[in-house]
Design a protein around this nucleic acid. Sequence first.
DNA 1: CATGAATGAGAGTTCATTCAT
DNA 2: GATGAATGAACTCTCATTCAT
Lengths: 204, 204, 204, 204
Amino acid sequence: MEKRILRAAVQVFARKSYHGSSIAEIAEEAGLATGTIYLYFRRKEDLLLSLFENTLRPYLHHCEPLIQALPPGLPQLRKLVELQFQFFEQDRAQARVFQIHAREVNPTLKPSISRTLAHYHQIIDRVVEAGVSSGKFSPHIDQFLARQLVFSGLDSLVTHWVLADRPYPLSRHLEPWCAMLARALGAESAFAETSPSQEQDHVG
Amino acid sequence: MEKRILRAAVQVFARKSYHGSSIAEIAEEAGLATGTIYLYFRRKEDLLLSLFENTLRPYLHHCEPLIQALPPGLPQLRKLVELQFQFFEQDRAQARVFQIHAREVNPTLKPSISRTLAHYHQIIDRVVEAGVSSGKFSPHIDQFLARQLVFSGLDSLVTHWVLADRPYPLSRHLEPWCAMLARALGAESAFAETSPSQEQDHVG
Amino acid sequence: MEKRILRAAVQVFARKSYHGSSIAEIAEEAGLATGTIYLYFRRKEDLLLSLFENTLRPYLHHCEPLIQALPPGLPQLRKLVELQFQFFEQDRAQARVFQIHAREVNPTLKPSISRTLAHYHQIIDRVVEAGVSSGKFSPHIDQFLARQLVFSGLDSLVTHWVLADRPYPLSRHLEPWCAMLARALGAESAFAETSPSQEQDHVG
Amino acid sequence: MEKRILRAAVQVFARKSYHGSSIAEIAEEAGLATGTIYLYFRRKEDLLLSLFENTLRPYLHHCEPLIQALPPGLPQLRKLVELQFQFFEQDRAQARVFQIHAREVNPTLKPSISRTLAHYHQIIDRVVEAGVSSGKFSPHIDQFLARQLVFSGLDSLVTHWVLADRPYPLSRHLEPWCAMLARALGAESAFAETSPSQEQDHVG
DNA sequence: CATGAATGAGAGTTCATTCAT
DNA sequence: GATGAATGAACTCTCATTCAT
């Protein structure tokens, strides 16, 4: 039931934004009565919060081992990007909510969201650390800056895709984007490593 | 008078978010009566729009020549980052509004905001293009991806700073961040070029 | 519930005029919360419109056959006047609203009111036409002028009664008024029919 | 100056109704500042009141002798109607205000309007009385009803004309309307007296 | 469990009116 | 006299939330 309500909420938020949506609309979308929403969620804000708890958090738990299973460096990085692209691509409405409308929310509930975010940061951090320890990435890179770069870059690509008039395959960006990130992180011969078909080695 | 109202709006928006603020609060912050706000701004939304028009746009016009005046490649890139850091650092409340609360806004007024954003994108594009033409950046980089990387990275650094409990000097990140960007863009010996004081050359 | 709200609206409009009344007052008169009004009426204007739709229109439908059932000429005319007197006399507050305050209303909703009015005009027209066809009224009278005379005369009598400090029986005017109208319409021997004493035997 | 303001008020009220107009609009129409209106009129309502005092009252004083100068009965009645048609026809915007928008006004200021109205009623009464005394009208007619008939009929004709999409000459109605009124008032051979071209005698 | 009518606080906005210039 | 910026009360309307059924 919670799932059903959250699915409805995602649809409505995606269409009309968080502040532009009313509980009544979400109830209607879910085929329920207004009051029923309140049997499962104490406040409107909780709908957003639960999206993070119920959707993003499981996704992150699902990601972690898949990434760790690969060799450090570019392979892990590529998996990270690939998984995120897949996750958002599978539900554009949900992606809209995460990328756009979850940000409308009162700062008071940011902490709850932050917890999930922190987990994501952790995953990125591990990829970076593993890359550095294994000598694949430069030892001089700043942990914090690397994380911001990886996270915000992905974030902005997804946001761009979500706002595009006509959806396009996010995966189109996978290889060149990973190559750029890898170079930023000081991966040796990042150009060589990536897509031979598209990019020639030219670094030297 | 408009300035006075906008300054008040920035303070209130920064504290309580756009949707969490009322015109009455903004008026009080400005030391005016509620109705007075409406002598200068037709709707609440116009307050946000005007921030973009009156603050961000002039800033962009101010930036452009300063950047263009420098040699292409890292110098231009560094100036771009430096100016943005300075711009936001000078008014943290305003930065909060731009980075957090301006995103709460009704999609109907996105177009107006987009225009300003497009200008910013253009500035980044020119820096990248000039770097590529002059051989400082790799000719294989994707224009669009490069722009997203530069833009979103800056964006996220500023957002992080804005949300930090205790402000810290953004400029602390200037050199290492530019180095990372430069490498991502395929700058030759990016490590060498950058800050000998902070980073040693080690790429090879 | 709608009835309850409309009854309250009539009372308040009658006391303080349409523009002088607030939704809050109407809600209080109805013993409801402000917001409840909006569950049944989308806008304040709709209260007035509904009065026409729900009160005047049914009344007209009720009138029509009663009038048509009588012989043409004075009997039909008298019935028309009598019914209208009765209709308004039964609720003076409602009469006030129809006669005085419904006219305060935004021209944009005039069309809706006009429809009801047009129906009333039609009823009058039929009485006049029937009177003419049957030879009871003069064939030379102008259809439009006759209608205006009948309608506006009734209207003004009701308005006068509604504004009077102390209500008096409208029916007092029934016979002499009908006699005047009949003469205006060229009814033969209208004088003979009416009031030497006040109302005596009258042809047949 | 008062005239100038009142002229502007008439234009604006006619366009947007009393409650739909703001003092600022009237000031703009008059080419004055908002505050200036208040040098000449204490409250918005006074604009409407003054229209009655400054326009309708002088008109009535002007009418009275012109009517009295004629022989009693139909000639006076015809003059009364003719003058009213002329008065309204000369300024349709003003007519709109008198016929439509002056009625939007708070009942509290009705008394002031009533005084002017009472004068008008008096003029009608004298025409009727003179007609009766001189034997032109029936001695059985009710003074009050006769006044209502004459007044409301004129009122409705003017209102109809004022609301018409395309103005037409009100004078078109002069003769047939007077004939109808005369018959209503019991004028002998009212049909014969009136417009031979349009109406034949047939009453007997 | 589910409903949905009812609530009522609170928002944005308008505008008659004032008054320092 | 004339101005028009400033005021602030008052209004309509929305909607998260409750609770009797």
